[in-house]
Nucleic acid binder design. Structure first.
Length: 154
DNA sequence: GCCAACGTTGGC
DNA sequence: GCCAACGTTGGC
């Protein structure tokens, strides 16, 4: 059992999009970074939990929880030239990019802003708050997961 | 294999 | 919109 943080731009796909599909699964496509892909391929397991993080928006932060409901499999959007995430160098014989399926679990009453995560000295080792981090999928320790959960507004 | 140029991410 | 910090690409 592993914990994760996964980033998405709310304008493109936010927690409300996932909430609207409550009970169903959706695929987390568009990962085009090797490190993030390798995490999905090598370490992500069915049943893992992930924080849903809103990036590149007015108020970046953690907004909810989802469950990983599949192993990593081929991301079909890489083969479609009309797709934003089209990769002309990837072929169905030798696909580069993977995705996983996720399911909505929870939406927080209030966002846990990046600002507060940064201000928490217990979380200073998290990749998210270290300078220059742009990784869109990252593992969290059990401690980090618990500390962040404790920051939620009840 | 080096590295400059370029593209992207994402906070502010 | 700016720009720092990366990651990727491609010429050599």
């Amino acid at each position: 059992m592993q914990y994760w943080l996964m980033k998405s731009e709310p304008d493109v796909f936010g927690i409300d999009h996932l909430y609207a599909e409550k009970g169903k699964k959706d695929h987390w496509d568009g990962i085009r970074n090797y490190q993030a892909r390798n995490f999905m391929r090598d370490e992500m397991k069915k049943g893992d939990l992930a924080f849903f993080y809103h990036s590149n928006c007015d108020e970046p932060g953690i907004v909810g929880i989802m469950e990983i409901v599949s192993e990593a499999y081929v991301d079909h959007t890489q083969f479609d030239s009309r797709e934003k995430y089209y990769d002309p160098k990837s072929t169905p014989d030798n696909p580069r990019w993977l995705m996983v399926d996720v399911k909505f679990k929870e939406k927080f009453n209030q966002i846990i802003p990046l600002r507060e995560i940064k201000a928490n000295p217990e979380l200073s080792d998290m990749r998210l708050v270290q300078k220059g981090n742009r990784l869109s999928i990252m593992p969290l320790t059990q401690d980090e997961w618990n500390i962040i959960n404790d920051m939620r507004v009840k």
